[in-house]
Nucleic acid binder design. Structure first.
Lengths: 171, 171
DNA sequence: ATGGATAGCGAAAATGATTTTCAATAGTCC
DNA sequence: GGACTATTGAAAATCATTTTCGCTATCCAT
């Protein structure tokens, strides 16, 4: 692929985003199809990374470090460069979504159609993250972006606070 | 100060957050007061950084690089370490808010009371950021967090999309 | 299937934002 | 005014992520 895009420079394929993209979760062939359609190659490493997300609970988020670790535990050796490259590609293809959970590193999770999108409640003290859904969010995001002529890609609502257990810890 | 906390480890002072904190924007003495109350010292560097935010439009966000640059242009020499340290302190004191605009670096802006909080619409292609307000957002954030026993600190709603001009560029 | 073109891999070096170290300086408080 | 110690600047250190480069493996056409 031409230029080694950083995540947010996904110009070429951005328009391909398909909110109704089917559950790749089942079809093992699908990854190859999706990759090849855009000129990327299917590799076992990419499949293994995607497997990791698919075997976890939907909405479970992982960072590069965790992916590396979990693959090691499964006996798979993989380099960080490969992990990062795979993550970028899969974000571009709409398979994964990048999350900014404000911890100095990026998290990824399976992408879900807009209407099912969930959001995050982060405890700034212990770093715990809870998920929640709220349709309002998506509506606001979509109306806000269309009213300004933006084509919507995704939206993230992140609430920062202190979780109950940390509150008691802190008195 | 005991430990050089990174931003999200603001345990000690977290509980001090006061959404109704007054307009420090006018009172030149106020920064000193707020700092001293928490055992921090008032310094000209901190004042200059805060001035930068206060002289810009409310809701204008800056990163460390831009702060450094703008101070240079004003004839002020300041080191990056000082800038970063000052930003952390002011976030802890509730004067500034840290933003995750997904560009590999952190932005800061004047903190505003919850009910006036605004959110961001980011063009993932050109990086342009537009602001908007929506009371719903704050309501959802606050109800979500209280229903789980979290004490709310702040919330960020970030919408990613492609702006009109980039859309036409991309055909 | 086979082979050529080249995307992708791993290892190591490079980057870039942010953080820390340390000696010198400067607020705070008595 | 002086002691105590937080803060500063410069330089080195971190840390996540990105890039480079030689080698391998996937894809497409034959």
């Amino acid at each position: 692929m031409a230029n080694p895009t950083n995540f947010f420079n996904r110009s070429e394929t951005t328009m391909e985003y398909d909110p109704a993209s089917p559950e790749l979760n089942q079809e093992p062939e699908l990854l190859k199809t999706v990759l090849n359609k855009e000129g990327f190659r299917f590799t076992s490493q990419r499949q293994k990374i995607l497997d990791l997300f698919q075997s976890a609970a939907l909405g479970h988020h992982l960072n590069a470090e965790e992916i590396h670790q979990q693959l090691l535990e499964r006996g798979e050796k993989i380099s960080f460069s490969t992990i990062y490259r795979a993550l970028h590609v899969m974000v571009r293809l709409g398979l994964l979504q990048e999350l900014e959970l404000a911890e100095g590193r990026k998290y990824y999770e399976l992408n879900t159609p807009f209407m099912d999108q969930h959001h995050h409640l982060v405890c700034v003290h212990c770093g715990n993250v809870e998920e929640f859904e709220d349709a309002t969010m998506t509506q606001v995001g979509s109306s806000e972006s269309t009213s300004r002529g933006f084509s919507l890609l995704n939206c993230q609502f992140t609430v920062y606070g202190i979780c109950p257990s940390c509150q008691s810890l802190l008195g």
